[in-house]
Design a protein around this nucleic acid. Structure first.
Lengths: 223, 223
DNA sequence: AATGTTTGGTGACAATGTCACTGAACCATG
DNA sequence: CATGGTTCAGTGACATTGTCACCAAACATT
C-alpha cells in the first residue's frame, strides 16, 4: 500500500504553496479510494468534496437527452476536479457524469476548506484559476474539433492518444464512438479504411497501431 | 449620458457584497466605452483588465484553423468576463475572440484588484465561481448540441433566441451559419424549408418569424 | 449608368449519421 | 463440450449535412 501522506508535495500545481497551507490541505483532507467503473459524480450524485486525483483517471462524459454519449475530457493523476464541485453544485440541471476508469485514489477536501484555501492563499488561487482556464480553453478547442474537424482526423488523433505510446489499444468500436460522439458504424467504416491502408490491425476488442507515422500525419492535418 | 457611478448596485450578482467590497469595486474600477465591432480580446490582444458589462453585448467566437467560425456564447449586460481575463492570460494558444456587437459600456478592474476581491470577499468568490460554473455547464450543453442536435432544431432555436421576442431578425445567412458553426448553403436550404412551411418570411438581410409556435415546437424537439 | 460588393440560390457530389438486420466471437452454464 | 445468451463487428440503403463551383439579384459607390 502506497503512502499518500505527502500527496501535496507530489502535486505539480501545489508544491509552491506555503507551509501552513500545505498543512491545512494535509490535515483536512481524506484519502479516498474509488473502485473502477464507479460513478464519481453525475445526475443525482453531487459530491460534497473536491477531489485531487492521486492515482487513476476519471472520464467525464456528457449524457445527451438524445441518448448519445460523448467524452468531454479526462481527469488524470495530478489534476483536480475543481469544476466538478464548483460547477455541479451550482447548477443541478447538468447532465455530465464522471466515471472512474480504473481504481482511483484521491484526496478529498470539504467545500469549506476549499473556500478557506482560495481566500487565504494566492498560490492556491492561481492553481484553481489555472485549472478553470485550462478546462475552458480545452472545451473551446473541443467545440472547434466537433464542429469542424473531419472524423478520420479525429479518430487517428484519438487512437494515438488512447494508446499512450503502446502498440495496441484495448477498446471497442462502441467505446471509440463515444470518444468522438459519433456512431459505432461510422467508427467501423473508418477503421476498415485505416486497415485497408495498412495503418492498423483489428481484433475483437482491440486495435493495433501498425503505422503510427501515417496516423500521426493524418492527425496533424489541421489540428 | 447615463451615470454609471452606482454600477455595482445594478449588478445582480454583486448586490450582496458588503459595503467595503462595493467601495473597492467602485473606486478601483474605470468605466470604459468600446465601439461597436471592436475586438475586445483575441489572439494577440490580451486584456489587462477584467470587465463587468454594464451595457451592450460581447460575442465570443472560436476561430478555427480550418477557417471556420462558430459563436461560443455572448456576454450580456450584468455579466462579467471572468474567464476572459483568467483564461486568456493563462494560456496564450487560445483562438477565441470577443467582439463588441454594439457599443459596450463596462467597468474595468485590474487583475490585482480582482485577486484581492476574491481573497477578501466570500460573496465575490461565490459570484466568480458561479460565473465559471455556468460557463462550463453551458459549454457542455453546447458540445452536446453541436454533436447530436439536428440542424433544423438548432436553427429554429437560434432564430427565436436572436429575435429576443421581436418579429424580425436582422441577420444574413452567413451570420446565421457562424452562429451554428455550419455553412451558409446549409442555412439557405433550411430557411427555404421553413419558408415553404410558412414559418418565416425572408428578405435580404432579415428573417421574419411568422409562426413562432411552430418554430418553438421544433426547437423544443430534444432540447 | 457603370461597376464592384454583398447576399442568396442551385446542383452535384462527398462525408457523416441512422436504421434494420446479420453473423461471428465470447461467456457462463449444465 | 454443447447450448444459449450476450457482446462485438459488418453491411446496405437511405437521410442529413458539408463542400465546391458556379450564378444572379440586390445594394452601394462613383
Amino acid at each position: 500500500m502506497t503512502n499518500y501522506a505527502d500527496w501535496v508535495e507530489r502535486f505539480p500545481g501545489l508544491s509552491r504553496l506555503d507551509l501552513p497551507t500545505k498543512q491545512l490541505l494535509t490535515t483536512r483532507s481524506t484519502i479516498v479510494s474509488i473502485p473502477k467503473d464507479t460513478m464519481v459524480f453525475g445526475p443525482g450524485e453531487s459530491p460534497e468534496n473536491m477531489l485531487f486525483l492521486l492515482d487513476g483517471t476519471v472520464r467525464v462524459q456528457q449524457v445527451s437527452e438524445t441518448g448519445h454519449l460523448i467524452v468531454l475530457y479526462r481527469i488524470e493523476a495530478g489534476q483536480s476536479c475543481v469544476l466538478t464541485t464548483a460547477c455541479l453544485l451550482a447548477y443541478d440541471d447538468y447532465s455530465a457524469e464522471g466515471i472512474a476508469e480504473s481504481v482511483v485514489k484521491a484526496a478529498a477536501i470539504p467545500r469549506e476548506v476549499f473556500d478557506d484555501l482560495v481566500a487565504g492563499s494566492k498560490p492556491f488561487r492561481d492553481f484553481v484559476f489555472a485549472a478553470f482556464s485550462k478546462r475552458i480553453t480545452d472545451l473551446f478547442l473541443m467545440i472547434d474539433e466537433v464542429a469542424f474537424q473531419r472524423l478520420d482526423v479525429r479518430l487517428a488523433d484519438r487512437l494515438l492518444k488512447l494508446s499512450g505510446g503502446a502498440d495496441k489499444v484495448a477498446t471497442t468500436h462502441q467505446k471509440l464512438s463515444v470518444e468522438l460522439g459519433t456512431a459505432r458504424e461510422v467508427i467501423s467504416r473508418q477503421l476498415q479504411e485505416f486497415q485497408r491502408r495498412g495503418w492498423i490491425e483489428q481484433a475483437r476488442g482491440s486495435v493495433s497501431l501498425v503505422d503510427r507515422e501515417q496516423l500521426q500525419t493524418l492527425a496533424n492535418h489541421n489540428s
